[in-house]
């Protein structure tokens, strides 16, 4: 396998893993949503993300000599082989916490996909362009909830501010890069993530201001996702998500 293919394989897994793990997290809300409408909204977003994950896994399989399918990549890799950012694996917490996590990620995805829509790789360009339409809705949905909760009651304000403070240390992981990025940036397949940090931060600041949420001052950073180093929560998600394929290998329905 040549090094570009290897890098593309790894990069597609990153994009896919982020979407799959956040999609799985949102699916945990199914039948638990605060209202029927919001239950559907969260699971709709979940399905969007799982659909994006599937496309990126499919594309990843074209870069590996191992004869594997998108399902194999989702259900038969272990925790250390997942390269999603640590933000998306964090537990749902309460509704405000879930919405804050979604907002922080969707804002990132919006800028990433916008940039990847100019990728020199046609498939990445196509998938990013298609995904951007969905991500823009996720951004709209979560940012409006942020504004609503921030300007709601004392209790909703407290919960959304707590979520911002608590999740802040995981956001830096989204902008981490390694040799995979170096190689793909050289070929204009992907972008230097530091170029979307400021636009990301500007969006966050703008929405927080309207929502009267204080920008967190936490300088801690918890990183490691792209190296396969995760918080304790990812193992539990995989345990539940992969159970069926692990217990009954090759089971179909």
């Amino acid at each position: 396998m040549n090094s570009t293919n290897n890098a593309l394989y790894n990069y597609c897994l990153r994009l896919a893993d982020n979407n799959l793990i956040l999609g799985q997290r949102l699916a945990e809300w199914c039948s638990q949503g605060p209202t029927l409408e919001e239950d559907l909204a969260l699971t709709n977003i979940s399905l969007d993300l799982i659909g994006q994950a599937e496309s990126f896994y499919e594309f990843a399989t074209t870069f590996t000599e191992a004869n594997c399918t998108a399902d194999d990549l989702a259900f038969l890799r272990s925790e250390r082989e997942f390269v999603n950012n640590v933000l998306v694996e964090q537990p749902n917490g309460d509704f405000a916490y879930t919405i804050m996590k979604q907002f922080l990620f969707s804002t990132f995805a919006k800028h990433l996909y916008t940039a990847l829509a100019n990728s020199s790789n046609q498939t990445i360009c196509g998938l990013a362009t298609k995904g951007l339409k969905e991500v823009n809705y996720h951004y709209m949905h979560s940012s409006q909830w942020l504004i609503r909760l921030g300007n709601g009651t004392d209790k909703s304000k407290e919960k959304i501010q707590f979520a911002a403070n608590d999740l802040w240390c995981f956001t830096k992981d989204m902008f981490e890069m390694n040799s995979v990025d170096t190689l793909l940036i050289e070929q204009n397949i992907t972008i230097n993530l530091s170029t979307i940090y400021t636009p990301w931060k500007n969006d966050i600041e703008q929405v927080f201001k309207i929502a009267t949420i204080d920008l967190p001052t936490d300088t801690n950073k918890i990183i490691g996702g792209i190296k396969g180093i995760h918080t304790e929560h990812l193992g539990h998600i995989l345990c539940e998500m992969q159970y069926l394929q692990r217990a009954h290998p090759g089971a179909k329905w």
Partner: peptide, 13 residues
């Protein structure tokens, strides 16, 4: 709770 939420809920449902 408001018109934006109504529009989005309608879209989702």
């Amino acid at each position: 709770a408001d018109k934006n939420m109504a529009l989005q809920n309608a879209r989702d449902v």
